[in-house]
Each structure stands twice: as structure tokens, then as C-alpha cells.
Amino acid sequence: MSESAHIRVTVNGSPIECDVEPRMLLGDFLRTTLALTGTHFGCEHGVCGACTVIVNGDSTRSCLMFAVQADGGTVETVESLGTIDALHPLQEAFRTHHALQCGYCTPGMLMTALDLIRKRPLANDAEIRDGLSGNLCRCTGYQNIVIAVREAAKVIRASNL
């Protein structure tokens, strides 16, 4: 039992080892300690989904988990997807179908969509909407997000064949 905890966690493929205060939210750890500011907070009470990252293979709200809980695990953030010059197929689909405007909810939306596509690659539009219903977007009206996820799933399925 201690007031500061030593953690080892693999973030976007890189091993990280450091001390954290137990109360530090995973999202704050990513944003401040690791300067991975792609993960955004939108409500800090688990409703909006903007801070979603993937922890040990599951999309997770990083405002509802403490960094110390990620000890020994893996975290994937939006920074783990493609690069500016080589976007991930999901990012490419978001761009092609104009599935983002202000971009604030986008990283959380992408990480949720990625988890959804990995687990339910054949989801229809209604299932995609249901899967994304815990991620709020205030700009797009969701239409283009649904289209982008549906189209990205096709590309990702095809590339895995």
C-alpha cells in the first residue's frame, strides 16, 4: 500500500515505466505524463466517450480508469493508428466521408470504432449506431460517421483476407 505507484505499461507499443499518483486518471496520464494529447476529455464522467482508448484490447473510457490500473497492460491511443502521410484505413474513411468536423470527439470515436470493427466486422448500420452510441459527436449528426465506419470495415475486412 503506497501513495505513489510504480507502473509498467506498454503504450502504443512502447514500454513505459514511471511513478504515478494512484488517483491520476488514465486520460490525464496519457495527456500530461506522456504528452499524448490526442486523447481528449469531454465530460470526465463517462458519458461522452471522447476519451476512449483501447486497454488490453477493449475500448475503455480513460476518464473512468486510473493509470495505475493499466500496470502490466497495453494501451492503444489514436496516436497508434496511421500517420499524417499514411492514414489508417479507418482514418482514411473518416476523411473521405467527412466524418469529422471539429475533431474533438474523433479520437474517441476512432478507438471505439476500431474495437467495434475488430469484434464485429460485419456490423450493419443499426449495429454500428448502437456500438457508437456511447460516443457523442456534436458536429456531424453521426450520418457520415456511420458511413465511414461501415466503409472502413469493408476495407479492413478485405485487407485481412
Partner: peptide
């Protein structure tokens, strides 16, 4: 296609809190 998107999609957008 939007010029803004690549940075916003890769987590390289820079909002004030960043």
C-alpha cells in the same frame, strides 16, 4: 478532402488544453 483532417485524425490537433 479537408486540409485539417490528417492532423485531427492522428491526434495531432492542438486544442487549447493541449
Amino acid at each position: 478532402k479537408r486540409v485539417e483532417d490528417p492532423r485531427l485524425l492522428t491526434g495531432q490537433g492542438a486544442y487549447t488544453d493541449d
